[in-house]
Nucleic acid binder design. Structure first.
Length: 660
DNA sequence: TCGGTAGGCACC
DNA sequence: AAACGGTGCCTACCGA
């Protein structure tokens, strides 16, 4: 049964569509505890594009609210219903609709997102699509016709458009029911519960946006543009002095009398050719073979020997700053809010967020350079203040809790601060000024002062190993020989003797179950495709009594399986750490958003960015202390279920701009 | 001219 | 034996 609620009754008659009043519709809707919800809008941006249609419904009944006829505003009676509904709304890609509802002053309290469910169920696996059409077909064998988005703006509320609109909510409950059977089987209900709660917060972060001081931003870029011109000039002058005439045309500038340089300094290919002619090493070892590269990593160690590299590296750095973080950002500023509203992708393979989307033209807000000059362009509105809170050593503490490695736990038990020096202390017996049990922060401070090099290597080793790297990774990251890299790798495991057992254990689990389970709280998972993964298919073949050994195909498969095994090991290590960290930050944001709602601070206390272990908040100046305390409290509370041995601590700083 | 890929680099 | 955690954006480059 399809119902239409409209103030434009002259549209009638339609076949199979019943016209009812707003009150009648709300009356009927009140009997449900589970409702599908969808909206049709005039575009992607909730601030500049109108809400056209709002659909609510079940398999049996769908209610279509013609919002156009209410001047694109949700009528009050419906608004109250949506705000006060105690059941669950089911949406496909809820974040999108939630943004338009926020704009209208509607805050849904509980949602179930069929798209998030689908991602969580199939994380790591090949999937045919996560759009509503694919999901409807998969669970209900229903082929939904083309997207009505777009159609409505051209056709208006035709019979066809209304039927499509009704279909978009009709199957949401059956889809949810079938998904939940699978979620139950795979123990993924809690992971989805977290992400269903989080999607409302994430929609809020996108809705809040962040203020960019564009004038200051342009000033900074212009300054860099001047600098880059000078550098380019100096580079070309150097080229000329070094008699690299092949890079010049015969043309001379009329005023400066300089020759016209043909080299494109943005072309790695051309620059490689040039640097080679100076005798610079432009190669890097990768996959056992030598590869061309002019990475900063490759060139940096040669700076003293080849002065031109200093200028080139400086040029590259500025060029990156100008092209990625320059004037192009004007297009990101919303004409209505004058703020930047990024879009986040909620579920990467690790469970982390990502940010930025080239289709809707939003920037990545998670890789803003951390220098003061850049960050200080992101500001609070007049009268407001920015509060930036982050977890102290989130990933290392998560690793400590997951692995329970005794020497790692000892660091926290003793309340020590400088982890990198501590690792150096354990890795290099020759720098031990006391034995392990007597270690103090003073001892670590002295290591930081006297053994900078060893501390730096320990730092890199700590990161590389947590990410699943090995001796080769360390040698690359630290620019040391491979044998030294392997030595450092071995020293790390000597320093943390039970870490290897933990890594073996997570691999054994992945090997046995065919998936990685990140932690036992959310039980979020990454599934290996057992058919397509070379390691698992070889394992399966070996169980076959008719398995043919010693054929060329088998040797090829063994080689591929070795590679796949390595990948499984790496992911098993890394995803548990990254994924659990991500669960914690999401949970923290949920708890903090609860406070915002509880205190009726919606749109007053804004969450303006999330960067993995960091939550950036903007609020009125006079609320600074209260909000800061609640934020830290939320973050530390969120850590508790996941970090039961070593607790997570959060730190906050505030200012008129983004300080981190 | 377009679209996809690779190299490089920003963040955590 | 074989490879070096996760993202997204910029430019150059290459082939259709």
């Amino acid at each position: 049964m399809i119902y239409l609620i409209t103030q434009q009754e002259s549209l009638f008659p339609y076949e199979n569509i019943t016209l009812i009043t707003l009150s009648e519709a709300i009356q009927k809707l009140k009997q449900y505890t589970l409702l599908g919800l969808d909206t049709e809008t005039g575009g992607l941006d909730r601030f500049t594009k109108p809400l056209l249609l709002l659909q609510l419904g079940t398999f049996e009944e769908q209610f279509l609210f013609d919002i156009i006829s209410y001047n694109n505003l949700i009528p009050d009676e419906l608004k109250v219903f949506l705000n006060e509904f105690l059941g669950t709304f089911i949406l496909q890609n809820a974040k999108f609709d939630l943004g338009f509802l926020f704009k209208q002053g509607v805050i849904l309290k509980k949602v179930y997102d069929t798209m998030l469910a689908e991602i969580i169920l199939t994380n790591g696996l090949q999937y045919s699509g996560r759009d509503l059409a694919t999901i409807s077909y998969k669970y209900c064998q229903i082929s939904l016709n083309k997207e009505i988005r777009g159609l409505i703006i051209h056709l208006g509320l035709t019979q066809e458009v209304l039927e499509y609109g009704a279909n978009d909510v009709k199957y949401l409950i059956p889809i949810k029911q079938t998904q939940e059977i699978l979620l139950q089987e795979k123990n993924l209900l809690r992971a989805l519960e977290l992400d269903n709660a989080f999607v409302i917060v994430l929609a809020y972060v996108e809705f809040c946006g962040i203020k960019l001081d564009y004038e200051k931003w342009v000033e900074k870029t212009s300054k860099n543009q001047e600098k880059v011109l000078i550098l380019k000039d100096e580079l070309e002058q150097q080229l000329f002095e070094d008699k690299k005439y092949e890079w010049f045309s015969g043309m001379q500038d009329m005023f400066t009398l300089k020759f016209d340089c043909l080299l494109n300094w943005d072309s790695p290919k051309q620059v490689t050719k040039l640097l080679k002619s100076y005798g610079v090493n432009t190669t890097i070892k990768q996959f056992g073979e030598t590869k061309e590269s002019i990475d900063a990593k490759v060139l940096e160690p040669q700076q003293e020997k080849f002065p031109i590299l200093k200028k080139y590296l400086a040029f590259k750095e500025l060029q990156k700053e100008i092209s990625t973080y320059g004037e192009s950002w004007k297009r990101y500023i919303n004409p209505v809010t004058h703020r930047i509203h990024t879009t986040y992708q909620q579920l990467m393979d690790t469970g982390r967020l990502s940010s930025g989307n080239k289709h809707d033209g939003t920037p990545n807000m998670q890789n803003i350079p951390s220098d003061h000059e850049t960050r200080s362009c992101f500001i609070a509105e007049a009268g407001n203040i920015m509060i930036d809170a982050d977890y102290q050593g989130q990933e290392t503490i998560v690793l400590a809790n997951l692995s329970k490695e005794p020497n790692l736990l000892k660091f926290y038990e003793k309340g020590l601060k400088d982890m990198h020096s501590y690792i150096a202390f354990l890795m290099y017996p020759q720098i031990r000024i006391c034995n392990l049990d007597e270690i103090s922060e003073e001892a670590l401070v002295s290591i930081k002062k006297n053994h900078k090099d060893k501390r730096q290597i320990a730092k890199s080793a700590g990161f590389a190993i947590a990410y699943g790297g090995d001796g080769a990774t360390i040698s690359k990251n630290c620019n040391i020989s491979k044998s030294d890299g392997i030595f450092v790798y071995n020293s790390y495991f000597a320093a943390f003797p039970e870490m290897k057992q933990y890594f073996n254990y997570v691999f054994q689990l992945a090997d046995h179950y065919g998936y990685i389970q990140f932690n036992n709280i959310t039980q979020r998972k990454y599934f290996f495709d057992l058919e397509k993964n070379d390691y698992f298919s070889l394992k399966k073949s070996l169980k076959d009594p008719l398995f043919a050994y010693n054929t060329p195909e088998i040797h090829e498969l063994e080689r591929a399986a070795g590679k796949a095994k390595n990948e499984i090991q790496r992911k098993a290590q890394n995803f548990c750490i990254q994924g659990t960290s991500s669960d914690i930050t999401k949970y923290a944001a949920i708890l903090f958003f609860k406070e915002i709602l509880k205190h009726q601070w919606f749109n007053v206390v804004k969450i303006v960015n999330l960067v993995h272990d960091e939550i950036l908040v903007e609020c009125p100046q006079n609320m600074e202390e209260e909000v800061k305390n609640l934020l830290i409290l939320s973050m530390e509370e969120a850590g508790k279920p996941f970090c039961k041995i070593v607790p997570l601590k959060a730190d906050a700083v505030s200012g008129t701009y983004w300080i981190h």
